[in-house]
């Protein structure tokens, strides 16, 4: 009886040793994979952080999850997650390049049109400021609102250009689009034709 119990204890001990050995075997590769994933996510953040910040945040969250599994000794899961993260980081960089091209094109387009829209509104506002009375479809209140809207649009356009010069293309395009909306509203109020480029 005693021999049987001792035998089972030895078996359990061997199983524990075997499990530990297996875990130890996976720990090294998991740590290496986490290190590679950290580098990949860091590189992706540098490349794409300002362009697709939400996707970078998702990568960082996944990296934190893999690190957590490593810390808890789930080496195989940590290894698998870290390995997949390297591929995902590469995909994010590719997506950022495509997005950057799209944003660059949008910026080029808006930077051609917005100054012309603003100039047209300013020209009409300048003439209307000299008029003894306003055209029938325009009230003095609407004209004042348009004047304020134009000032805001010009200030925002300066901010958009600052963002662009600082390399923050995502922010620049976002602000430029809001400037476009303000300019369109001003043109409509003044009865000016809205250019086709502003309608897309």
């Amino acid at each position: 009886m005693n021999r049987k119990i001792i035998g089972m204890m030895i078996l359990a001990l061997l199983a524990a040793v075997a499990l530990t050995a297996c875990g130890g075997k996976d720990k090294g590769p998991a740590e290496l994979a986490i290190k590679a994933a950290e580098e990949a996510v860091s590189a992706a953040k540098t490349e794409a952080g300002k362009i697709i910040p939400d996707q970078i945040a998702a990568l960082e969250s996944a990296l934190a999850s893999a690190k957590d599994k490593l810390a808890k000794g789930n080496f195989q899961e940590a290894l698998a997650e870290a390995q997949s993260l390297v591929g995902k980081a590469k995909d994010v960089v590719e997506a950022a390049k495509a997005k950057k091209d799209e944003l660059s094109q949008t910026w080029t387009n808006l930077s051609q049109g917005i100054p012309r829209m603003v100039a047209a509104v300013e020209s009409r506002m300048d003439i209307l400021s000299q008029a003894k009375s306003l055209p029938g479809n325009l009230t003095a209140e609407a004209l004042e609102d348009t004047k304020a809207g134009l000032a805001a649009a010009k200030a925002d356009w300066a901010k958009a250009q600052e963002s662009f010069n600082a390399g923050n293309l995502h922010e620049a395009v976002s602000v430029a689009n809001s400037v476009k909306e303000k300019a369109v509203k001003a043109m409509e109020t003044l009865g000016l034709p809205v250019p086709a480029g502003a309608k897309s």
Partner: peptide
Amino acid sequence: DPWDVKQY
């Protein structure tokens, strides 16, 4: 010229 803003 999609940005023609002139009124005629």
